[in-house]
Design a protein around this nucleic acid. Sequence first.
DNA 1: CGCAATTCCTCCGTATACTGTCAATTACTG
DNA 2: CAGTAATTGACAGTATACGGAGGAATTGCG
Lengths: 174, 174
Amino acid sequence: MPSETQICDSMHEAAVRDGAQGGMDDVYSKPGHLIRRLQQIAVSVFAQECAGHDITPVQYAALVAVRDNPGLDATRIAALIDFDRSTVGNVLERLEGKGLIERRANPQDRRVKILKLSRRGAKLLSDCEPAVQRAQARMLDPLSAAQRNEFLNNMRRIIARADNVPKGGPNGAS
Amino acid sequence: MPSETQICDSMHEAAVRDGAQGGMDDVYSKPGHLIRRLQQIAVSVFAQECAGHDITPVQYAALVAVRDNPGLDATRIAALIDFDRSTVGNVLERLEGKGLIERRANPQDRRVKILKLSRRGAKLLSDCEPAVQRAQARMLDPLSAAQRNEFLNNMRRIIARADNVPKGGPNGAS
DNA sequence: CGCAATTCCTCCGTATACTGTCAATTACTG
DNA sequence: CAGTAATTGACAGTATACGGAGGAATTGCG
């Protein structure tokens, strides 16, 4: 039974204890590695809960953004969900291919393509909402309520800083 | 000046306040979204600090794993850094292409290819170590020492659970 | 020893994810 | 109003990320 979206086997205990004659800084407990693992887990949990709906986390985010802001173009949707335009362009193309959104040219500005949720898109969103809720809850399930709150706040702190300092280091050398 | 790895513009304040007539669950503050943003920031910071070294986070992780465990094969390296075999296979191929590692057949077991760090690989690792340290520090820079510790522990808690419950939900239905 | 199960790598297919570039179009400026 | 700047979507290129198929090689079991 192959199942969907594994997560990897991970054999750290053994490996870290044994080999490791090099830097001995333990790359596996550094923020970068942990964050990557976290994202891995989040995607996996989402895929597990939403299995059968044929939807990915990014596609879901884009779909919600289109639903809540009908009439926007791809560039603005991308800014909303914090993606670059190319990625969002591909995602929207797939969503259109699946008949979940509609793209129409704008008579006022022939550069842009107006986005709108289709009937099927709306149905899919409401269909998989419980699953998404479960997924979001499960991601932080190992934490207590207090830890969960603290954790979310810390993530927001990091993200807020990144929003204000988009480029150079914290030592604002322009 | 185009610069490397932006992060996106993000225009939430305006958008969340204005459109949003739909579910009103605020997808943008859910764990999944925040974790994705965090990973985005981590990758961006790494790229900024390591610019000029022509190395990505994953390539760095693989390189360190090979350095600390010479003689392992791709499958075991993948388990070490928590990636699936296909991805690691591609990464190692690129690393070999850049002359940072060497892949040799194993006479004892002709299925496997033994991995070893090359001279250039070792040099690159020691060259970019300070940059990597800076990157790791900068990721959690917005947090106080206490918050940083709490944050890392919470990430480890989530990851530990995922390691023990690889498949089904927390309600361990095998 | 023969053969099934396993293991390892490779390739394919899909989906992110981002940079850079381009053409078409619109906005701006003198 | 002409020339330029800015914007938008599309595209190319690179690098993750993961599941699954397939072939070569090894192991284990009878």
